[in-house]
């Protein structure tokens, strides 16, 4: 059965990032998560499998820590998981990420549609779908908010800054969907239980036969801090707090 492949990334939750006083970045306490908008990509694959026919599967390129993501992804509906388990993922740039995913997609074989999200919540580089399209020389449609299928043909509505576009292509194709495209389902207990039983295929870096040397050399990573007054008005009644706030705003000459 033809596969609909949802690509997702296991990322550090930006809400847990600690910036040290010297602006170094501490990710040690950051929990992992499936990048926010990739949940929309997974949902889109599951919905597409329903209307187009075929089997939704999930694919991720991540290091050992991404193991935790497999069950999470599968609890959202895909029938099979694929994981490129490679330490190289930690230093991958846009070029390597797309080539690794493309190589795995070739191994998975027999696919009709590849779905990515708009961008990952860590890099938000928005390169993956077009680059996968280039690597596999497939048609690409980005900024997608709606997909309809008719036989082997995909009609998609794209949302750009000033216009919407309806475009059409023959499958197989690569799409990048916007988060407005759907509302990801929150997996219930049953889905979580079932996820543990779904098959997972693991690839290693060596299986893919690509060069993992990044083209973008990272020379520095620094936290961004905003210096603000951080004054909380918590004395007295709510009315008193509001009065204190209004007084402070008058003093700042912004009222």
């Amino acid at each position: 059965m033809s596969k609909i492949i949802a690509c997702y990334k296991w990322v550090a939750d930006e809400a847990d990032i600690k910036i040290n006083p010297d602006l170094t970045v501490d990710l040690k306490k950051a929990k992992g998560k499936i990048s926010d908008y990739d949940r929309n990509a997974i949902e889109a694959a599951v919905q597409a499998a329903g209307s187009l026919g075929g089997k939704a599967v999930s694919l991720t390129f991540g290091n050992a820590s991404a193991k935790q993501s497999l069950k999470d992804a599968l609890s959202r509906g895909p029938e099979e998981g694929y994981w490129i388990n490679a330490e190289e993922a930690a230093t991958a740039d846009g070029s390597i990420t797309a080539k690794a995913l493309a190589a795995a997609i070739n191994k998975i074989g027999d696919y009709s549609l590849i779905i990515c999200a708009e961008g990952a919540s860590d890099t938000y580089a928005r390169q993956t779908a077009p680059r996968i399209g280039a690597a596999l020389n497939l048609p690409v449609i980005t900024s997608v908010v709606q997909m309809t299928f008719n036989g082997n043909s995909l009609t998609a509505v794209r949302k750009l800054e000033d216009s919407t576009e309806t475009v059409q292509t023959e499958l197989p194709a690569v799409v990048a969907i916007l988060p407005e495209a759907n509302e990801p389902t929150i997996p219930g207990l049953k889905a979580v239980m079932a996820a543990g039983k779904k098959p997972v295929t693991e690839y290693t870096a060596a299986d893919l036969g690509i060069d993992f040397t990044p083209k973008n050399q990272v020379t520095a990573v620094k936290g961004y801090v905003m210096n603000r007054k951080n004054i909380i008005f918590n004395e007295g009644s709510t009315a008193d707090q509001v009065k204190a706030l209004a007084a402070a705003l008058r003093k700042e000459c912004v009222l």
């Binding site: 740039d93 846009g94 070029s95 580089a125 690409v140 750009l160 083209k215 973008n216």
Partner: peptide, 23 residues
């Protein structure tokens, strides 16, 4: 860096298999 620009840029980088810096 518009929706169309980002898409086109990444495709060009993909076909050239070269580095890209987004935004």
């Amino acid at each position: 860096a518009t929706a169309r620009g980002r898409d086109l840029a990444a495709r060009v980088a993909g076909y050239l298999d070269c580095a890209m810096v987004s935004d």
